[in-house]
Simulated scan of single mutants.
Amino acid sequence: MSQLDVTEPIADIESLRLLKYRELLRITALDVAQVIPYVDILLALSTLADYILRKALAIISNTSDMQWHGKRLPFALFSLGKLGAQELNYSSDVDLIFVCANAEDIDGDMYAYYALLVKMIQRFIRQMEEKHSCGYLYRVDLNLRPLGKSAPLVLPLDDTENYYTVSSDVWERFAWLRARCIVGAEPLGNEMSARLHAYKYRKFLEPSDIDRFISIKEAMQVQRNKSGAWNVKTGEGGIRDIEFFIQVLQIANAGFHPILQQTNTMTLLHNMVNLGLVDAIVAKSIQHSYLFLRRLENHLQMVDEAQVSDLPEELEARLMIAKSIGFTVGNVEQILKEFNQELQQSRDIALACFDKVLLKKSEH
């Protein structure tokens, strides 16, 4: 039921837009009806995005002005973030990094190849984000690429590897923990993944790594204490608390345990139980909390694909959200009481995860 349903040929970007919204309607119906596990809803949203990204690039690459010696341009595209983890939201950006071939591996002029590839990426971004009467495809975020916003849109294999070899930015390692090659030249994608394997999954952590993890935790603490509505993603007891806990455990142990060398949060948690890193009963409560919070965030984003994560404080708006995720029995007061109790339980579990991650520098 959660599998992508493509029955008609898709020959242009407009057809992709129509497919996206038809599939979103189907996935939303499954979500609201609660007829499949929520991990399958997240997977369905991710599978849809994977298909659209691949198909859009195929459509663009097949145009006559995008051919390289009569063939498709060689490149690899990696997804990171929620898409890389195969747990996309209804209104997520898609975090992407393009990688191109080295000069010695190109049949022809490197500058011409590179210019054509940049032109293709620019066209891809424009067509993904272009808004029409039926909507748009996805917001594309390339800011996780080496050197971020100021960098070229794509770097060759060697330059990408060299950048990460000397990088001390632990956020970049966190980002690549969720990386999947989703489209492009398979040998190029496999080579990039192989070269960055040791970068992602180190056998030993340096004291400087621990200090950086602590700094990240302290920065998160500042963010979550900001005034205003509680944010289901970054607020105290939110989604990020659980993800940070799991990613720190992964980055500390994946070098020794290949079953931790993968991208999905809940699969990682299950594998951590098998390794004895997390107690089975604790893991069950973490999974329940995580999926409740992810479902809550998704239902906040269902209306108009709004990229919001703040839980509304107004009674009517909160009641609508509570009902949409299944709290429907009783009067308004009873519904909100049950919803708020479930929310507090989930937040407490997420907060406990966050509190388990390392000590403050003064205590370290």
Score class of each variant (00 low, 15 high):
48 L>N: 01
63 T>A: 13
35 V>C: 04
41 I>E: 05
52 I>T: 01
61 S>P: 07
58 A>T: 14
49 A>E: 02
42 L>M: 15
49 A>V: 14
57 L>N: 12
30 L>G: 05
55 K>F: 05
42 L>T: 11
48 L>A: 04
33 A>W: 08
36 I>R: 01
47 T>C: 04
30 L>Y: 09
44 A>R: 00
28 T>D: 12
60 I>Q: 04
32 V>S: 07
57 L>Q: 14
51 Y>I: 06
47 T>A: 00
35 V>Y: 09
61 S>V: 06
38 Y>V: 12
50 D>Y: 00
52 I>P: 08
63 T>P: 00
52 I>S: 07
48 L>H: 00
55 K>D: 07
44 A>L: 02
60 I>R: 02
31 D>M: 14
28 T>P: 00
53 L>C: 09
58 A>V: 11
45 L>I: 04
38 Y>R: 10
52 I>D: 06
37 P>E: 10
65 D>G: 03
61 S>T: 01
46 S>Q: 08
57 L>Y: 12
37 P>H: 01
57 L>T: 06
40 D>H: 08
34 Q>V: 10
33 A>G: 06
54 R>E: 08
52 I>E: 02
64 S>E: 15
46 S>K: 04
62 N>M: 10
42 L>S: 08
46 S>G: 02
32 V>H: 06
30 L>N: 09
30 L>S: 13
64 S>P: 08
34 Q>C: 13
58 A>W: 14
28 T>Y: 09
45 L>N: 06
50 D>A: 03
43 L>C: 02
56 A>H: 01
30 L>E: 09
63 T>N: 02
39 V>Q: 07
53 L>Q: 09
55 K>M: 12
34 Q>K: 15
63 T>M: 06
28 T>C: 10
27 I>Q: 02
56 A>Y: 01
48 L>F: 00
58 A>K: 14
35 V>M: 11
44 A>Y: 11
36 I>S: 04
61 S>M: 09
40 D>V: 11
47 T>W: 08
62 N>A: 15
27 I>T: 10
36 I>K: 02
56 A>G: 02
35 V>F: 00
63 T>H: 12
